[in-house]
């Protein structure tokens, strides 16, 4: 039976090409367009892996991710997070004051806080962050590494 992968992103294009790529590589792909829908589909479909976008309306990827990790039934589902600012995440642990990134300070702070909160709660970090623009082949490769074909 094909392994099930859920893609949650408010950007239709991303959902479209990622599901196409996954299906092309023999996975069963499900798309969801916001955090709320994403949580419902995870609960109903019990996917083998979830790909979550960080920046989503209504429920950000981090909020959704924490709900998964707190849920006994869902907490072992591997998660890949998509972000437009993965380079921000690279130095999340290090205090950095790169003045050139002022406009994104709030986002960076929010992420730093989310990760810190998760760590404080004893939650496991997402398995992987992938930066946008996403290379579908890279995503497939990583999915394969995490859950096999």
């Amino acid at each position: 039976m094909a392994k099930k992968v859920l893609v949650v992103d408010d950007d239709e294009k991303t959902v479209k090409f990622l599901t196409a790529a996954l299906e092309e590589n023999g996975y069963e792909a499900i798309g969801a367009y916001n955090g709320k829908e994403g949580l419902e589909k995870i609960q109903n479909e019990k996917p083998d892996l979830a790909i979550l976008d960080v920046m989503m309306p209504k429920k950000t990827g981090f909020v959704l991710f924490r709900q998964l990790r707190r849920d006994e039934n869902l907490k072992n589902i591997p998660v890949i997070m998509l972000t437009g600012v993965a380079e921000v995440l690279e130095d999340l642990d290090a205090e950095s004051d790169d003045t050139h990134e002022r406009p994104y300070d709030s986002l960076r702070e929010a992420m730093r806080k989310s990760i810190k909160d998760m760590r404080d709660e004893g939650l496991i970090k997402p398995d992987l962050f992938i930066d946008k623009p996403i290379d579908p082949e890279l995503v497939i490769e990583k999915v394969r590494e995490l859950i096999g074909s």
């Binding site: 950007d11 294009k13 991303t14 479209k16 090409f17 990622l18 196409a20 790529a21 437009g84 600012v85 050139h100 990134e101 406009p103 994104y104 930066d131 946008k132 623009p133 996403i134 290379d135 579908p136 082949e137």
Partner: peptide, 20 residues
């Protein structure tokens, strides 16, 4: 940084579309 940030999302579509 701003330009790069905006371009990323647009390139994301191009990259995914090109793959398809």
């Amino acid at each position: 940084t701003g330009i790069q940030h905006s371009m990323k999302n647009m390139l994301n579509a191009c990259k995914g579309g090109a793959y398809m």
